[in-house]
Amino acid sequence: MSSELSKKALMPPDILARKGSRPIVCLTAYTTPIASLVDAHCDVVLVGDSVGMALHGLPSTLGVTLEMMILHGQAVRRGINQALMVVDLPFGAYEESRGQAFRNAARVMAETGCAAVKLEGGENMAETIRFLTARGIPVMAHIGLTPQSVNALGGYKVQGRGRDGERILRDAVAVSEAGAFAVVLEKTTESLARVITEKIPVPTIGIGASGACDGQILVTDDMLGIFTDFRPKFVKRYAELGRNAGQAIAAYAAEVRSGQFPTSEHVFRDAPGGGQVAN
């Protein structure tokens, strides 16, 4: 990457410095074209393990591999000039030991060119976060609803209701003190997200959390309406690309079958004076 791009690109300390100030805008990306689009408007571009569900048709994020994250990370890197690029560590890539987490995080950073990794977990991952950050690997934490633990949580349920809020608050404090430069809060109660945002000194990035968070993130495919049958409560749709694409594909199919496409404007003519190809 050129020195000009290096000067423009946001880094983890820039995001950390945004605590309590201008809201942090985050979206996901898995391909070069989408990365280029979101890079123009976002502070953080996350190569999320949601790629497994969004692009590969998996039922959850649990089947996503390290190789998949690296492949999509490399694609996204080609479309990023200014946003901070963060790559998820997939399920099974960091939980076994701090050494495993370091090796895989270092590989992801080296092979994708990302500036940080994201991992799920609170108090149970605090020592791993401390180990990574002490060795030059910036970490974005992820607490609340952690999709990689969906089986243990009993599904995609709202987190932090009642006394469960105390657990998530402890998680937030633990990952912040361990050195995470930002914390994703997913599908928590609004009041809890507000308390956490006020309490910890690093930015909170909400997804189904609270407008009081220091930033917001959505899966780009969700907010663009690419999935016509998937509409979580916390997602605002800014377009209906899935429906529009379906209509466009139907129109194309109808024109091919009726002979309306292609027309003369879509085919190539012989050069002036050129002969016809013999039968």
Score class of each variant (00 low, 15 high):
residue 158 V to S: 04
residue 54 A to R: 09
residue 117 V to P: 03
residue 125 M to A: 13
residue 241 L to W: 09
residue 62 L to M: 12
residue 25 V to Q: 12
residue 195 V to E: 12
residue 260 Q to C: 10
residue 37 L to V: 11
residue 76 V to N: 05
residue 201 P to N: 12
residue 167 R to I: 11
residue 140 M to K: 02
residue 48 G to D: 08
residue 16 L to D: 01
residue 234 F to G: 03
residue 224 L to P: 01
residue 152 A to W: 05
residue 10 L to A: 14
residue 182 A to Q: 02
residue 128 T to V: 09
residue 198 E to T: 06
residue 115 A to V: 06
residue 177 E to S: 02
residue 277 V to Q: 13
residue 218 L to H: 02
residue 132 L to F: 06
residue 225 G to V: 08
residue 5 L to A: 14
residue 22 R to C: 06
residue 151 N to V: 12
residue 38 V to N: 06
residue 147 P to E: 04
residue 95 E to R: 11
residue 144 G to E: 00
residue 137 I to N: 02
residue 128 T to P: 01
residue 177 E to V: 00
residue 201 P to M: 08
residue 272 P to R: 11
residue 170 R to V: 06
residue 63 G to T: 02
residue 271 A to D: 15
residue 191 S to L: 10
residue 223 M to P: 06
residue 89 L to A: 08
residue 235 V to D: 01
residue 81 N to G: 15
residue 129 I to T: 04
residue 210 S to K: 05
residue 133 T to Q: 13
residue 97 S to N: 12
residue 127 E to R: 13
residue 40 A to L: 14
residue 262 P to T: 14
residue 222 D to M: 07
residue 275 G to E: 14
residue 246 G to D: 14
residue 51 V to E: 02
residue 115 A to Q: 15
residue 247 Q to K: 15
residue 149 S to A: 09
residue 242 G to P: 08
residue 200 I to Q: 00
residue 11 M to Q: 15
residue 251 A to Q: 13
residue 120 E to S: 05
residue 73 G to N: 04
residue 60 S to M: 07
residue 255 E to Y: 04
residue 210 S to C: 10
residue 155 G to M: 08
residue 43 D to S: 06
residue 75 A to N: 03
